[in-house]
Amino acid sequence: MAAKTLTIDGQMVGAAEDQTILEAARDAGIHIPTLCHLEGVQDVGACRLCLVEVTGINKLLPACVTKVTEGWEVRTSSERLQRYRRMVLELLFAERNHVCAVCVANGHCELQNLAVSLGMDHVRFDYQHPRLDVDLSHRLFGMDHNRCVLCTRCVRTCWYIEGAGTLNVAGRGEKSKIITDLNAPWGDSTTCTSCGKCVMACPTGALFYRGVTVAEMERDRGHLEYIVTAREKKQWIV
């Protein structure tokens, strides 16, 4: 396989010819922020965080889906790119109801981490405050549309890694929504294998394991009684 040489942020980088800019940068230790990209699933170039500048090309190129070209000069973090990235995050935060303090993913959230690392410390746009549902019909998992960034990582994971094809996108524009089957409650899905891969793929707290969210903790008091009774009376409560 032919190799390509290019510069990324002034650094000479060698890459295999079918590599993307994102992969070449990663191999060279250069970090490009991403959100909709997930190792192992097909890229869609939707979040626009990984846009980079290439000398001589007018348009910004998404690093995750753009193949390297010999001799390119790529810039991954110009002032302009950083400003656009912060705006992407501002738009995402304003779009739905992201309330970190009460979110299951607080401290483990890619959206939150991106805001911190890219310096998005406040949102200048008016919050949309949409009224959205939470689907708790599935036995093991929950889906909170308030926290969804529509990156479709779950959808692609469901189709291309699990092969179940349960998740999909319905509606368009701001009304886009992740659905299960043909917009039936998740718990009624006949195709979901309950594998949980979508939950692993989700960058935010939109998909979560049930039983570990705020106010969901239940104590098994009976267990203490079981032990004490067994010790003292040699009786094992069935």
Partner: peptide, 21 residues
């Protein structure tokens, strides 16, 4: 444009909403 945005990329989906607003 806001109504017809497909919703795939963030700038168009959320940006048109904010511009319209």
């Amino acid at each position: 444009c806001m109504d017809e945005s497909c919703g795939k990329c963030v700038p168009c989906r959320a940006g048109t909403v904010q511009m319209h607003h």
